Computed example of a mutant assay.
Amino acid sequence: MSGSQGDNMEGMARMRRGGGRHAVRRFDSRGVRRERSVALRDAVRHGWDAAAVQAALLGDQPTLW
């Protein structure tokens, strides 16, 4: 199978060869995922801070509890 990593991952998901993981959602654009990843990296740069990690992962999205 040739193509980009994204193409290969989508093909694996279609053939149910993803180890039980869900396919990467297309509506979650790479830019959004990258921003979240960078924010998470910055949150733990100087050690674990649970509040900073939660803020990096959720942004301004409210939680249920």
Rank of each mutant, 00 (worst) to 15 (best):
M1C: 10
M1Y: 03
S2A: 11
S2V: 08
G3L: 11
S4D: 07
S4R: 03
S4C: 02
S4L: 05
Q5C: 09
Q5G: 06
Q5T: 08
G6W: 05
G6F: 07
D7F: 00
D7V: 03
N8G: 03
M9N: 04
M9E: 05
E10Y: 03
E10K: 09
E10W: 01
E10S: 11
E10T: 09
G11E: 11
G11I: 04
G11A: 15
M12I: 07
A13K: 04
A13V: 05
R14T: 07
R14W: 01
R14G: 03
M15R: 12
M15I: 04
R16M: 13
R16N: 15
R16P: 00
R17Y: 08
R17D: 10
R17I: 05
R17L: 15
G18Q: 14
G18A: 15
G19Q: 10
G19D: 12
G20R: 03
R21C: 13
R21H: 13
H22G: 12
A23L: 08
A23M: 08
V24L: 07
V24C: 02
V24H: 01
F27H: 10
D28C: 04
D28Q: 09
D28F: 09
R30H: 11
G31R: 08
G31W: 03
G31C: 05
G31P: 03
V32L: 13
V32S: 11
R33D: 00
R33Y: 01
R33Q: 07
R33E: 02
E35S: 04
E35V: 04
R36D: 01
R36F: 02
R36W: 00
R36V: 08
S37L: 11
V38Y: 00
A39F: 02
A39R: 10
A39K: 09
L40R: 07
R41C: 13
R41F: 06
D42N: 11
D42M: 06
D42I: 00
D42K: 11
A43D: 08
A43V: 10
V44C: 14
V44T: 15
V44N: 01
V44P: 06
V44Q: 06
R45W: 08
R45E: 13
H46K: 14
H46F: 15
G47K: 12
W48S: 15
W48V: 15
W48Q: 08
W48Y: 15
D49S: 11
D49T: 07
A50L: 09
A51Y: 02
A51I: 03
A52G: 06
A52R: 15
V53R: 04
V53M: 11
Q54P: 00
Q54T: 12
Q54M: 12
A55W: 03
L57K: 01
L57P: 01
L58H: 04
L58S: 06
G59A: 07
G59K: 01
D60V: 01
D60F: 01
D60W: 02
Q61P: 00
Q61D: 00
Q61E: 03
Q61S: 03
P62K: 11
P62R: 09
T63R: 13
T63Q: 13
T63H: 05
W65S: 14
W65K: 07
W65M: 13
